[in-house]
Design a protein around this nucleic acid. Structure first.
Length: 827
RNA sequence: GCGGGCGUGGCGGAACGGCAGACGCGCUGGACUUAGGAUCCAGUGGGAGCAAUCUCGUGGAGGUUCAAGUCCUCUCGCCCGCACCA
């Protein structure tokens, strides 16, 4: 073997060989237990970044480890290939079609992934923009439509002026477009939605099943779904047949209502003000609110403004006549779009009432405290007994809520309801580069689905991309014109495409049957592989992709297409890769390119560093010097192992009982490392400490090598080196393969069984324990490892130095901790 | 405002409630060398001491415990998510 570690040569050589021998192909059946290890597939931007390297290195170590542990591991890769950047590139450069741009990027990125030596079964590669894939995206849309879960409605939706398309609620962050940060506007449009709200309850309840998910993500989803229990109660409008229905979580405070508020956009507003002197001013106000951006509209910061409509409502419980107002802090989208104002017991109402001098009426009195409407500084929302509430007086909050709801239900003026913050998923996009929504509009028959036999509805390639903000599909006559599948008459094709999150909501099922042209996937294969055992990706998808995928899975389970109710049993959200304390970005100029690192140090070093520098879920600070260190380590391994080629025996397993001295030490170190690495990868995903255990082993081997050959057992060295290469193989697949096969071992190191550690080899005959006096360390001593706690106590107390130390002191208690210490408590 | 996370050497980070700082980086010294920014060996939390050793030390203040970086209460700082949700 060469004296020097030539990473470039080695990495290229083995990548070619692995591909030629197809060693990462995984069969769909076989005697081994299955494991589905999945990393979030990337958008093919054309360039891999460090976040990808981290994501895929983590997955690769796991997949390789589990394969060596005897599992049949499904470890696929593909492309989330529809999306705006491709189309924007086409608009900007004019002469490049999004498809060409995308496929070129895929080629470039695939090459980069292959350079990292990742163990994907490339036979299963998919791209969501391929008609063979999006045909099934459309097919699933039709299934949702068939089951009443895809529908079209006119609604105020989020519009991103820069992306020239609508967005789902989940894709708006603090009033801005999640992709481009432009301020999002509201527009009234007729759009396609998925009824994810039908699954709100199950999406919430089943979070309990996801014990393998980070709590953080579960809480985020819980908050996003936002279940709240309460009641809807009808307030008749005074002098009209209209009714204001409010949603409230505090029906026990209904006697404290001193005014009612409608959201400015509420349809009832116009009806109430017609012909009243207040009308012009209110219309003005409503228009002003409507024109606000989403951010300004919902910001907690903005001042609460309200106007009296001139109309009144009647409280159905006590008959009191209260004014109806319009105020900017009431949102049309949530609940019923109107609320009852209870200033005494709701902080927002309180601030509003103080500002406009509206009356404050106490109806909940906390025990041992007297609330006074004139002097109170904030609303009281805690526990207490109902007062000023007629026959409900004396009831505590919880019973009060129940009793008022019961009463309302009896009288037919209200009912208990559960409200969710989750909205239906808006999936229409006014853009070209997405899967066309397979629907046809017919003047005679209305909205008609494209028959499944006519799928896919293919994207036309002869399209012009202009910066007009118009979807080019709408300007493509032969795409638009269609025949109505129902009556055979002329029809118009839907020109909106689907949100790309739809494409990524089921790709992990499609990996099981990537080329199946007859079915969305093979039933047996899905039953074999699913659910995904381990999913790995960034936390930025905590709500978006992960919630949509859960929704899809529940639907697919309902219609019998998948066996599982949750898609991902375990989830690992990896931290960001930082440089100089902040996220790598072009604008900050702190980007480290994976290509450069691989070219300078090799893929093995890049992988080692990124796994060693921090535990996977934590943010990772990039360090060029840290990379040097990993490179140095691999060189150190090379210099240790390469000269031993041909010297070492194969498959040595020394007899633990016969080993003494340095041989016994080295043997123990080897098995200790096997134990640690196995537990750190398999149990807690602490790859950083697994690597450090391997480093310790290498340090030990350097020491051991110094021992004269005649004084050491060759079997111990062979065993150690063999174990070293296997333990290191998931992290640094190329250099370990080169050394393994260079030593004359047959077969790939990656197909070797993972070593088992021997308990006997790991255990010590003697251990150092600590003697503590009142918890402070006083001295150390060597004791037999198998000593009893009682024996430990005696041994310590009989020691002359300890007896001297205890002279004149009163021993209160002696606490022996086996293998660790003895603590003597004295007075 | 609500929810979650994190604060440990010069740095990245280790530590089933039981020897704080594994491993790596950096630094210091030595060896090899014409040379080394290569490699190998040794040392490396602060303070005191020639030394054995002593002492302080995990953002801060309390508490539980024989024993706390770890558990509990309060508090400060940073990061992330949600944000007028009735």
């Amino acid at each position: 073997m060469k004296e020097r570690y030539e990473f470039a040569e080695i990495e290229e050589k083995w990548q070619k060989k692995w591909a030629a021998e197809d060693i990462y192909r995984v069969p769909d059946s076989g005697g081994r237990p299955k494991y589905y290890c999945l990393e979030m597939f990337p958008y093919p931007s054309g360039k891999l970044h460090m976040g990808h390297v981290r994501n895929y290195s983590i997955g690769d170590v796991l997949a390789r480890f589990l394969t060596m542990r005897g599992y049949s591991v499904l470890h696929p890769m593909g492309w989330d290939a529809f999306g705006l950047p491709a189309e924007n590139a086409a608009i900007k450069h004019g002469n490049i079609h999004p498809a060409v741009w995308t496929y070129e990027n895929i080629s470039a990125m695939r090459a980069q992934l292959k350079q990292l030596g990742l163990s994907y079964d490339w036979n299963r590669e998919i791209a969501t923009c391929h008609p063979g894939y999006y045909r099934w995206t459309q097919w699933l849309f039709l299934q949702l439509y068939k089951h009443g879960l895809a529908y079209k409605k006119e609604a105020a939706v989020n519009w991103c002026p820069s992306c020239a398309t609508v967005l789902a609620n989940e894709q708006v962050k603090e009033g801005s477009c999640e992709r481009c940060s432009a301020t999002v506007e509201k527009r009234e449009l007729n759009q396609w939605f998925f009824k994810i709200t039908k699954y709100a309850d199950r999406l919430l309840d089943d979070l309990k099943l996801l014990e393998g998910w980070p709590e953080k993500v579960r809480i985020m989803q819980e908050n996003w779904i936002g279940r709240s229990e309460g009641a809807e109660i009808n307030f008749p409008v005074d002098g009209s047949d209209d009714v204001m229905t409010v949603f409230t979580t505090r029906p026990d405070t209904i006697f404290g209502v001193t005014y009612m508020i409608l959201a400015p956009e509420h349809p009832l507003v116009e009806k109430l003000i017609q012909g009243r002197p207040e009308a012009p001013e209110i219309r003005d106000f409503v228009n002003k609110v409507r024109s606000l951006s989403e951010l300004d509209r919902t910001s907690t910061e903005s001042e609460k403004i309200g106007l009296f409509t001139g109309a009144h409502c009647v409280n159905p419980l006590n008959g009191e006549r209260v004014p109806i107002l319009v105020a900017n802090y009431v949102l049309l989208e949530y609940g019923t779009g109107c609320v009852m104002g209870v200033p005494a017991h709701d902080q927002r109402d309180f601030e509003f009432a103080r500002k406009y001098n509206l009356p404050i009426k106490i109806v909940i009195q906390p025990e041992g405290e007297a609330l006074d409407p004139d002097t109170m500084k904030e609303a009281y929302s805690g526990e207490g007994l109902m007062v000023n509430s007629g026959k409900f007086n004396g009831l505590a909050k919880k019973e009060g809520i129940r009793s008022v709801i019961e009463y309302c239900e009896e009288k037919g003026i209200g009912k208990g309801v559960i409200n969710f913050r989750l909205r239906d998923w808006l999936i229409s996009r006014q853009r070209y580069w997405g899967a066309p929504i397979p629907m046809i509009y017919c003047d005679k028959c209305g909205i008609v689905p494209v028959p499944e036999s006519q799928l896919p509805v293919e994207l036309p390639m002869d399209v012009e991309f202009k910066n007009t903000g118009r979807n080019p599909l709408a300007d493509h006559p032969s795409f638009v014109s269609a025949t109505c599948p129902q009556c055979g008459g002329p029809g118009r094709r839907e020109t909106d495409t689907m949100d790309t999150f739809m494409c990524s909501s089921f790709y992990y099922y499609r990996y099981t049957s990537p080329r199946d042209g007859d079915h969305v996937w093979d039933d047996e294969k899905v039953r074999h592989w699913l659910p995904v055992d381990q999913y790995i990706g960034g936390v930025e998808h905590a709500i978006l992709h992960l919630l949509y995928s859960r929704f899809f899975t529940k639907f697919l389970n309902d219609i019998g297409l998948v066996p599982n109710v949750e898609p991902f049993t375990r989830l690992l959200t990896q931290g960001m890769v930082l440089k100089d304390g902040s996220k790598m970005s072009k604008s900050k100029g702190n980007v480290v390119s994976p290509e450069d690192i691989v070219a300078t140090y090799g893929a093995d070093t890049a992988r080692m560093f990124i796994l060693f520098a921090a535990p996977p879920e934590r943010d990772l600070e990039w360090s060029d010097q840290g990379v040097e260190g990993c490179s140095r380590f691999l060189n150190r391994v090379w210099r240790l192992v390469a000269p031993l080629a041909g010297i070492l025996e194969s498959g040595s397993s020394p007899d633990t009982g016969k080993l003494v001295g340095v041989d016994r030490e080295m043997h123990r170190l080897t098995h200790g490392a096997i134990k640690k690495v196995t537990e750190d990868i398999g149990g807690r995903f602490n790859f950083n400490t697994a690597v450090s255990a391997i480093m310790e082993m290498v340090n030990g081997l350097y020491q051991y090598r110094e021992v004269p050959e005649t004084d050491r057992d060759p079997a111990v060295l062979s065993e150690a080196v063999e174990a070293l290469l296997i333990l290191l193989a998931p992290f640094a697949p190329h250099v370990t393969e080169e050394l393994w096969q260079g030593m004359g071992r047959s077969g790939s190191v990656h197909l070797q069984p993972w070593p088992e550690y021997s308990q006997e080899a790991v255990s010590e005959e003697e251990v150092t324990i600590v003697v503590q006096l009142n918890g402070k360390i006083k001295e150390r001593m060597l004791v037999p490892a198998d000593i009893t706690p009682e024996g430990m106590k005696e041994l310590v107390l009989s020691r002359p130095s300890v007896r001297e130390m205890l002279e004149g002191k009163n021993v209160v208690k002696v606490i022996p901790v086996p293998g660790k210490l003895v603590n003597i408590v004295v007075k």
